[in-house]
Write a protein that binds this DNA or RNA. Structure first.
Length: 190
DNA sequence: GCCAACGTTGGC
DNA sequence: GCCAACGTTGGC
């Protein structure tokens, strides 16, 4: 295995490049190779042993981009472009691959209709001429059996602190674990 | 760096 | 379609 590389240094460099992400090379680093400490933190940019997952909410006007379109995009997902607000950008930048978010229909519908998963971390938004904003890729995970309406969210004391209630204009929002569980329950999941 | 004017979002 | 809330812009 190692012999295919000119030397062990080249081999380790290739492995590290794979770990840093960017494009997947299709091959994990073979076992038995010590990459040294810091591997996990390089992978996740989070302290080792802290696997806390964050939750999010993505707003979209169905006339612009609907849940049905998101579902149709399938496992390959789509980029979530168009964010032009620095607070929303901050949320996008904090997202980790594998984290989930609500898909919320604003204007028409006004309800959480499904769950999405982040499948690519923050990278530049090619539709932003200023070059200041970025985006992530998301894919549809599943629809809520029962959409959770804004009215239902506002009526629920557990959800009184949701950003959706208090700063409804923010297009990408953080969601607490308790809020996540509650909305999922109201939607007929879990 | 303040702040008025303006534009946009999104609930109603 | 109205308008409150919020963010951005640009003159000073």
């Amino acid at each position: 295995m190692v012999a295919q590389y000119k030397c062990i240094r080249t081999y380790v460099r290739v492995c590290l490049a794979g770990l840093r992400g960017g494009r997947r090379r299709g091959q994990a680093c073979p076992p038995g190779v010590k990459l040294g400490y810091g591997e996990a933190s390089r992978r996740t940019r989070r302290p080792v042993g802290n696997a806390a997952m964050a939750y999010w909410l993505f707003k979209s006007e169905p006339a612009t981009w609907s849940w049905d379109q998101q579902v149709a995009a399938g496992a390959a997902g789509t980029f979530w472009n168009g964010v032009r607000n620095h607070l929303a950008k901050k949320q996008l930048m904090a997202m980790q691959v594998g984290e989930q978010g609500f898909f919320y229909h604003s204007n028409e519908g006004k309800a959480v209709v499904g769950l999405v998963e982040v499948i690519r971390p923050y990278y530049p938004d090619h539709t932003d001429e200023t070059g200041r904003f970025g985006m992530v890729d998301v894919r549809a995970v599943k629809a809520l059996p029962r959409p959770v309406t804004l009215d239902a969210i506002k009526a629920d004391p557990v959800l009184a602190e949701m950003v959706l209630v208090n700063n409804s204009r923010l297009s990408v929002q953080p969601v607490t674990e308790a809020e996540w569980a509650r909305v999922c329950a109201l939607g007929g999941l879990g």
